Simulated scan of single mutants.
Amino acid sequence: MTFLQKHRKDLLFTAVLLVLAGVLFRFTHPGGAGTVAVLRYGDPQTEQIIDLTKDARYDIDTGVYTIHLQVAEGGIAFVDSPCPDHTCEGFGVLRNVGDWAACLPAQASLTIEESP
């Protein structure tokens, strides 16, 4: 009898527990809870921390364009972009750690990070 045959039930039980732990983690750590948006723009680079727990609109002059950011329901998005291609709007709403968007014409990037 092979190892897999001997421990099939144990391995299945462990896999189910890992999946449940992942689901539980996902529901107990949604975007906005313990996360912030970090906006970096300009030359020299300016960094601005944006609270994701308070719905708000931000109009920020990057020195090239004035970008418009909307915070709602624990997420943030580029909205009403003045740049020529509006690519930054296509990133949608960012809410999870590691989510990233940029408006290259405005020399701005937005990243979701753990709260300091």
Rank of each mutant, 00 (worst) to 15 (best):
R95V: 01
R57K: 13
T14F: 14
T66D: 03
H7P: 02
I67T: 06
L52K: 01
G74S: 09
G22E: 02
P44H: 10
I67K: 03
G74H: 02
P82Q: 12
I50W: 07
R26H: 09
D55L: 04
H86D: 11
Y58G: 02
V71I: 11
Q5S: 14
I76A: 03
L11P: 01
Q48C: 02
L69P: 00
M1V: 15
S109T: 14
G32L: 05
G31S: 10
L39R: 07
G42W: 03
A72G: 01
A72P: 00
W100D: 01
F78I: 11
L24Q: 03
L39Y: 09
R26Y: 13
D61Y: 08
A15R: 01
H68W: 00
M1Q: 11
H7I: 04
C103Q: 06
Q48P: 00
Q70F: 05
F25D: 02
F13W: 12
I49H: 10
Q5I: 08
S115D: 09
Q107L: 12
Q45K: 15
L110V: 12
F13R: 11
A77T: 05
F25N: 09
T53M: 02
L20H: 01
Y41F: 15
Q107H: 13
R26K: 10
L18T: 00
A37I: 03
E73F: 05
D59L: 11
H68D: 08
L110N: 05
G75E: 05
F78V: 11
G92V: 09
E114S: 13
G34P: 04
P116L: 11
H29M: 04
D80K: 12
K6M: 11
E89W: 05
A106E: 03
Y58A: 02
V79N: 04
L4A: 13
